[in-house]
């Protein structure tokens, strides 16, 4: 009876790790845990746990599917997207865990994407690193998702008309951006970050004008 419970517990633990790692207990005690690596050259950073708290960590190598982090000691522990919300490698790269991307069933375990913009309640993330082609990963068109107020991620469409439609909905309260979206020729890959930045800057300016006009 107890052995059965133990086996079930082992299985449960194994399911929280990436499929590429053998389950704990399936290799002998002299074999190092394959989810941990010794490595040098990590860089200062931090990660955000699932409750939203930030913790300092050394950030090692990472891919779209896992990051090696060290929160103390000599070993780097592999962490997969569904275990954290985000990590930052100082001075500025932020990678966000994207889980539940509806249009990508094969990415069900989640992926890490590079944050391109955050402001005015909007967040834009590029996860082109999941592509197989080296050239596409280096300089291909970005694969973008956007969300508003921490809501669900939405794919940024590659077609101009669908892109216009989505961004008109997201940025509806900015007359200048709306005009540009309606009269210009927005290019989804190149213009998404610029339009969001323009929108957020206008919100800041608006807030400052309101604050300035209400002073005695």
């Amino acid at each position: 009876m107890m052995a059965g419970v133990g086996a079930a517990a082992t299985t449960a633990v194994a399911q929280t790790k990436p499929a590429g790692f053998p389950a704990p207990g399936t290799y002998d005690h002299l074999t190092p845990d394959p989810s941990q690596v010794r490595q040098g050259g990590g860089q200062a950073g931090a990660f955000q746990d699932l409750e939203g708290h930030w913790h300092a960590a050394q950030i090692g190598e990472y891919t779209a599917y896992k990051v090696y982090m060290n929160t103390g000691g000599t070993n780097y522990q592999a962490v997969v997207p569904r275990e954290i919300k985000a990590f930052v490698k100082y001075p500025g790269d932020t990678l966000v865990a994207l889980t539940g991307l509806a249009s990508h069933s094969k990415l069900g375990g989640g992926v890490f994407g590079q944050q391109q913009f955050r402001g005015a309640g909007l967040q834009l993330v590029d996860y082109r690193y999941t592509r197989r082609s080296l050239l596409e990963r280096l300089v291909g068109a970005p694969t973008l998702v956007v969300r508003q107020a921490g809501g669900p991620w939405q794919e940024v469409p590659r077609s101009k008309s669908a892109f216009q439609q989505l961004f008109l909905t997201l940025l509806a309260d900015d007359a200048a951006v709306v005009t540009e979206l309606k009269t210009g020729r927005p290019r989804p890959g190149q213009d998404a970050t610029r339009l969001l930045t323009q929108y957020a800057d206008a919100r800041v300016t608006q807030q400052m004008q309101i604050a300035g006009s209400t002073r005695p």
Partner: peptide, 13 residues
């Protein structure tokens, strides 16, 4: 922009 894309891919600061 191309240089920045490569920087991110190479994971350098």
């Amino acid at each position: 922009a191309a240089a920045e894309g490569v920087r991110q891919q190479l994971q350098v600061n």
